[in-house]
Design a protein around this nucleic acid. Structure first.
Lengths: 331, 331
DNA sequence: GTGAAAGCGCTAACAG
DNA sequence: CTGTTAGCGCTTTCAC
């Protein structure tokens, strides 16, 4: 059974497409279509459950009412929850979300970016891996509506919704120093992303401030291609070095670490302290205790959508940089 | 800067649109376009970074290469992870995912369903709340490609990727009975979904098999509109009834329960036993101990995509019902 | 008040 | 080997 088109409706009803189109788009009055005609059309449309083809509409209007959501991994709770919030906010405005997970791979990000552009999404909300600015800069130069969140590249001027990184990390690490930690390791995913560098700097700041000598060996980077295994190996190393605290630059590796401590390592649980950028509910009760930096995800989603809408609507270039304050959660 | 169209390319290069189109769609050889011409076109296209408009293509071909993913909540780890797996599988086939979260609300589900249809998605992967079959049956009658997972409605004949519900739940509850539980409560989200009913039946079966009298008061239903609060209130009730074990019908409420036990209740942690349908990594170490029923999410995603593809490709009606075996995880 | 017709960017049958 | 052309379903200008 083929779907009805506006043409079919027109024929069946004996009106022209134009008339049907006007009525369907609530321009009946404006275009002086008689009340009677409008009723007939609306009634019929309801009866046969006619649904206009959005693709045709999009082609004509140059608007698809879709937004691309490009993140490292949609199943990461942080991105999943923000995604959900964004989905809801966009829904209210008649927009829909197409998702894309990059796995922190430049190549995948590039392909997804082209895909989104080819699909004519009206805008993009992105947590980029920023490993190659070329394509982003091209899009930006074309004034393609984009809002970036979570991560920043100082060489790339764009709309950013960010949270402070360095200071909160410093304060979080300070907390565990106050509680007696002296030998503090750090575990991070690839820090070629500026925001992650800042988090690491925060860690270094805290050490410096407390005259703890920085031991570069205690800064461990996990391999993105094998997050699970690599995190565990690096943890193992840090534990062998007898650290009494570990700072993590995102929630994903903290979660793996807690799991590993409890199921594989099974030692030092109460002795060691964790610091995590990003919060998770389970930190409220998990051992080791975690001091965490909670990002204001509702705000992030809200600003991302608001600014994206602004960019889409305005013709001239909008560049905003919003920096939100995360919340330090002591435990 | 307006985007280039195939027309522009044709003019600039002095070929016709057809030739360009053939070459771009790798039909150059098939259509006997000279090697030289192909090279020129490919070269030029690369140089100006021409990207064909997918919307126009879609309109022409009647295919959008998008699939709708309709679930109660994309930020629920279960749906998020399956979503991610599906995204990857579809990506390999050139398909992309549009997401929609229903919040278990019929109205929202209906709206999302229309949205997906209007957008001309090529297919739908759905965990429906099944509170009104009308629209689904209409779509099904129109042979719209759909695959349902996680949940089933026996009154609705469709493609299903499911896991066994009743028996695994019975076995899981049996485990904790073996460990000494005698007064076992149950907490579930709205069980107007058949699959959830089956899980509850599994719980009842286990009690019956062990001659434990069923106390309907110990079967508590949480309010979907306020999951957090409601779950906590119901838990409070169950604890006041001195149950020595609680079975949960999905991971979301189990996670809330663990959080509540550890942060609010702070008692009975080692005394009480949990059973959870759906697994979470944190169950590996969380207290109370959780016996869980782990769904094979990779398989679910794989089958969902495979069968959807099959349905899309075949002209005649395909109806499959796959029932996978979940894995019982003792702890 | 209503309709004819052009055109959004692309594909593909058909012609040459 | 390559080009002309119709048409996917819709919107909108202009004409009647």
């Amino acid at each position: 059974m083929k779907k009805k088109s506006i043409n079919d409706i027109a024929k069946e009803l004996g009106f022209s497409k134009t008339t049907i189109s006007f009525v369907l788009n609530n321009k009946g009055d404006e275009k002086n279509i008689s009340k009677r005609t409008q009723e007939i059309i609306l009634e019929y449309v309801r009866k046969v459950n006619y649904q206009p083809n959005q693709i045709a509409k999009s082609l004509k209007n140059g608007k698809t009412n879709t937004i691309g959501y490009l993140v490292p991994d949609i199943s990461n709770p942080f991105y999943a929850r923000i995604g959900r919030l964004i989905e809801d906010l966009l829904w209210e405005q008649g927009y829909h979300l197409i998702i894309g997970s990059t796995d922190e791979k430049q190549e995948k990000e590039d392909l997804l970016l082209s895909m989104f552009v080819n699909r004519q999404v009206d805008g993009l909300i992105i947590a980029s891996c920023f490993s190659d600015l070329h394509r982003l800069k091209t899009l930006s130069a074309q004034n393609f509506p984009m809002v970036f969140f979570d991560r920043e590249d100082p060489d790339f001027n764009a709309n950013y919704i960010l949270v402070e990184n360095q200071k909160p990390m410093r304060e979080a690490v300070q907390k565990i120093i106050d509680k007696g930690a002296t030998k503090i390791g750090l575990l991070s995913i690839t820090p070629n992303i500026y925001s992650l560098k800042l988090r690491i700097n925060g860690y270094k700041d805290a050490l410096a401030k407390n005259s703890i000598k920085l031991d570069e060996n205690l800064i461990r980077i996990v391999d993105n291609n094998d997050l699970q295994e690599s995190t565990q190996a690096q943890l193992n190393y840090l534990m062998s070095q007898k650290v009494d605290a570990i700072a993590f630059t995102n929630n994903q590796i903290t979660a793996i670490a807690i799991w590993w401590m409890n199921t594989i390592h099974k030692k030092d649980l109460s002795e060691i302290k964790f610091v995590s950028f990003d919060n998770l509910d389970l930190f409220d009760y998990s051992i080791p205790r975690v001091v965490s930096v909670a990002q204001p995800i509702e705000e992030i989603a809200k600003y991302a959508v608001d600014i994206l809408k602004e960019v889409i609507q305005s013709n001239d270039r909008v560049i905003k940089r919003i920096e939100l304050k995360p919340k330090l959660i002591e435990r």
